[in-house]
């Protein structure tokens, strides 16, 4: 393959997944500028290893590289993220706060606020739960793809997803949940 067609093939296959890459990086490292740097670096790495990609789901392949690049960034900038442990007590308290807010009619939030609050809840989830929720509920990857990408057993994908969703569910307003059900 000539360099020109190689590059063309790379752009055709991978650039359509640019937003997927950015969305994952943004959810993992939060800041727009950091996410952009990481995505650019991930694309350069993907290009370097492109020969070894033999087909399959190139989006999952790219997201795996984005995730690795994020982890390298964490090692450099935010060691503590990698060692954060799941704090049942802290999250238990958050739960209670969220439910109190919802049950009080005076503080019923607007749809916009509700989305903000839900986004904040996901941002605050420990990394290991956050990435599973993003990969499944936002990027739509299969459990098997997530298991390969994160190098964890299928059962772990499922249990982290279940716990992650459960934590977030506390931030859903009762009325928005009902609305969704009617559709």
């Amino acid at each position: 393959m000539t360099e020109h067609t190689r590059r063309q093939r790379f752009e055709t296959l991978l650039l359509p997944h640019l937003s997927a890459a950015y969305n994952l990086a943004r959810w993992l490292v939060h800041k727009d500028a950091d996410a952009q740097d990481i995505v650019q670096e991930a694309f350069l790495r993907a290009f370097r290893y492109f020969e070894s990609f033999r087909g399959g789901n190139e989006r999952a392949w790219l997201l795996g590289i984005v995730r690795n690049t994020c982890y390298d960034w964490f090692r450099q900038h935010r060691q503590h993220e990698l060692h954060a442990t799941y704090d049942e007590e802290l999250h238990g308290h958050l739960h209670t706060d969220a439910q109190t807010t919802h049950s009080n009619p005076e503080t019923i939030l607007s749809q916009h606020d509700a989305t903000q609050q839900l986004n904040r809840a996901l941002s605050n989830l420990p990394l290991e739960f956050r990435e599973v929720v993003v990969l499944r509920d936002l990027e739509g990857l299969a459990y098997k793809e997530i298991a390969v990408l994160m190098d964890i057993p299928l059962g772990t994908v499922m249990s982290r997803l279940a716990r992650g969703r459960k934590q977030l569910a506390a931030y859903l307003q009762p009325h928005t949940v009902e609305l969704c059900y009617e559709v």
């Binding site: 839900l118 969703r165 059900y181």
Partner: peptide, 12 residues
């Protein structure tokens, strides 16, 4: 369903 609909998807 609500999570998938309400969480923000960041466009590049």
């Amino acid at each position: 369903t609500a999570l998938q609909q309400q969480l923000t998807y960041f466009q590049a």
